[in-house]
Amino acid sequence: MSTPGTSSPRQAAFDVMVDGVREPWWIRTRRLVVLSAIIVLTILGALDVITTVIGRLRPSSPISAPGIADGALDAVAEGVAVDYLSWDAEDRARREQVLRRWAVPGRDVDGWDGQGRQSADSATVLARARQDLGNAVVTVRVRVVPYTVDGTSGPPDQAPPQSPDHDPGPSSPDTEPGVPAAQPAPQTLPGWRAHPARWLIVAVPLALHEGRLLLAASPALVGDPGTDAPELLPAGNATSDDRFSRDTRSSVRTFFEALATGDLDFVRAPRARIASLQGAAVLVEVRQWRGVQAPPGKSPEQRMGVASVVWRTVENAGQLTCTYRLRLHRQDDRWLLAAIGIDTGTSP
């Protein structure tokens, strides 16, 4: 038997001497556990501090979704929108040169008729609709100043035609077409009369081409907050339906007339979300309408097609040809507009 204050031979093997005093093994073990915990917490704290510092030093990424960064999309789309909505009949070559720099090589993206004068500025992105990692449609609001011929100063070399109902007299913002802006009309140029600024909204289709973000097709005038979807037609080469195209051509024209004026209640399909141009443009003609056959297995009450439309901008400052992709819905023997998007540069 061991006396009090002494250890058995087996315990003595685990005890140690500290300052001449024998220390039990369990005290030593507790001390090692506490020391190990302190070391671990110190290391974890240091790693947390390092991670925080690195996170603050590293610039935040503008990418909110896989693919092209939002900032890159916005920068290109805003530049395209300003250049696309600016033109001058006296210097057509300048616009052609500028748009070629924005566009995919070999792609014709100029829908302007070459008449009139208009300047644009103050572009702001309203929405983005991504198709895939390299394609997107960006909706941009732009402030424009339209010009008309000033008869008192003598017409410019290429004067835009005047519409029969054109009234060059002053008007209040309540009666002006389109959405008025507060910017006053700039100083009138010789041969031209400037009008108060308006807001226009344009959808810009962009694509990543050989490492550059470029304009894939002509932009198109749309309503706020933009088109319903960037792509509405089935993938691949859809087959045209000539009979369907003939039967629905008048309905399609009615759709675009309502899109311009805002009278969409009688042409819009139930639950369709379609915004009007709010009088920012007047329909000149539906230049081309091509309906396509319904894909196998799809309801014949849902049809699609592509329309090429000519708009006359406010104050008759010029005309733009825009291409749209439509989805139609038949209800009670009437075709209604279910969705509208823009051409994105891929052939249906």
Rank of each mutant, 00 (worst) to 15 (best):
T6G: 13
A12W: 00
G20S: 00
E23M: 10
P24R: 10
W26D: 07
T29D: 15
R30I: 15
L32N: 14
V33R: 15
L35D: 11
S36R: 12
S36D: 13
I39H: 01
V40G: 07
T42R: 06
I43P: 09
V49D: 15
I50H: 03
T51I: 14
G55L: 11
R56P: 11
R56K: 14
R56C: 14
S60H: 11
S61T: 12
S64E: 15
P66C: 06
A69C: 06
A72S: 10
E78W: 00
G79M: 02
V80G: 02
V80M: 10
S86I: 04
A89L: 13
D91S: 03
A93L: 14
R95A: 03
V98S: 01
L99P: 00
W102E: 10
V104S: 07
P105A: 06
P105W: 12
R107P: 02
D113F: 03
G114Y: 06
Q115D: 15
G116F: 09
Q118A: 06
A120M: 06
T124Q: 08
T124L: 10
L126G: 03
A129G: 13
Q131H: 05
D132T: 03
N135H: 04
V145E: 11
T148K: 04
T148W: 02
V149F: 01
G154T: 09
G154I: 00
D157L: 15
D157E: 15
P161A: 14
S163T: 09
P164N: 07
D165G: 12
P170W: 13
P173Q: 06
E176G: 00
P177W: 04
G178W: 12
Q183T: 09
P184T: 06
P186I: 10
P190L: 12
W192Q: 05
R193V: 03
H195S: 08
P196C: 05
R198Q: 04
L200C: 00
I201T: 09
V202Q: 00
V204W: 02
V204S: 01
A207M: 04
L214Q: 04
A216R: 07
A217K: 02
A217C: 12
G223W: 08
D224T: 08
T227I: 09
P230V: 05
E231W: 05
L232E: 08
P234F: 05
A235I: 03
A235G: 14
N237F: 08
D241Y: 12
T248N: 11
T248R: 13
R249C: 01
R249T: 13
S250N: 14
S250R: 11
R253I: 08
F255M: 06
F256D: 07
L259R: 11
T261S: 03
D263Y: 07
D263N: 14
V267K: 10
V267D: 01
R268E: 03
A272F: 01
A272K: 06
S276N: 05
Q278K: 14
V282P: 04
E285M: 07
V286H: 12
R287E: 15
Q288M: 14
G291L: 04
K298V: 11
V310F: 00
V314F: 05
V314A: 06
V314Q: 01
A317D: 11
G318D: 11
Q319F: 02
R327H: 09
L328N: 09
L337Q: 02
L337N: 09
L337E: 01
